[in-house]
Computed example of a mutant assay.
Amino acid sequence: MTRAETKERNRRSLLDAAFQVVSRDGYRATLDEIADQAGLTTGAIYSLFGSKGGLVAALVTDHLRPHYEEIEQAIPAEMGLLEAVEAFARYYRRSCDAPAATSALSLQITLLDMALHDPELGAQLAASVRTQESHLIALFTGRSHNGKAVTSHQAQRLVTALRAVFVGLTQGVVLGLAPGADEQYFVDTACALASNAALVDQDADAAV
């Protein structure tokens, strides 16, 4: 095994261990336990990720990247804005029924708790999420809506609103608190947001 292969294997082992330990212990998770779970030393964590915050931020990226890649595949470039939003909504709703939906929600809640207890870590987590969301903003930018192309600023406003709604609805579905939130409900809610003139059609940059 080459040095690069060993490094990647150790990185993968630490991310998998962090997922297990962080999901269970939240902000109380220690580097010692994560390293022990991975069969490595804390030195490996500092070498590969720089700090506990760096490891947790990498965990968020590792967790989110596959989802954003699947979303990009589910929304072809030729779709208009509302078609794209509908496809996005359907993807999000179907993810609620995935086998890993409960563990994903558990990790999400745990990470929020960690961010509240550690502002520096919270800033790193926010930066990691924003990096992933930039792919969504690019995905919606330029799509046709009401005869115009959606600007980057408009796409950013829309992504912020859609993510907030979908995260809340997903939590409700997984916890059994939103029994009527089926796939069409997700679609209708998302398209209502995307059709709102104040949200999409007005570009704040023009008012500055």
Rank of each mutant, 00 (worst) to 15 (best):
T141R: 03
S128P: 12
V173P: 12
Q124P: 14
A192G: 03
S95E: 15
H117G: 02
V150G: 08
F186H: 05
G142V: 01
L139H: 04
L105D: 08
A149I: 07
K148D: 11
K148C: 09
S103H: 06
H63N: 15
D113I: 01
A127F: 07
A149T: 12
T102A: 14
N196W: 11
V129P: 06
H117V: 04
L64W: 07
S106M: 13
G176V: 10
S152Y: 15
L112P: 01
Q154A: 05
L177G: 12
R90K: 05
T102M: 13
L116Q: 13
A178E: 12
Y91N: 06
T151K: 08
A161G: 07
L105E: 14
I71Y: 05
Q184A: 06
A181K: 08
T102K: 15
A87Y: 11
L81G: 01
S128C: 03
R157W: 09
I137V: 11
S103V: 10
E83H: 07
A164P: 03
F186E: 03
Q171R: 13
R94K: 14
Y92R: 13
P66E: 00
Q156I: 00
C191A: 14
R143M: 00
I75K: 09
S106I: 15
L125R: 01
Q154V: 02
T110C: 01
A192H: 04
R90I: 06
G168A: 11
S152M: 15
A197C: 13
F166V: 07
Q124S: 11
A197G: 11
N146E: 08
A77F: 15
C96V: 04
E120V: 03
A149G: 14
D188M: 02
G176H: 09
T189C: 08
S134E: 08
C96I: 02
H117I: 04
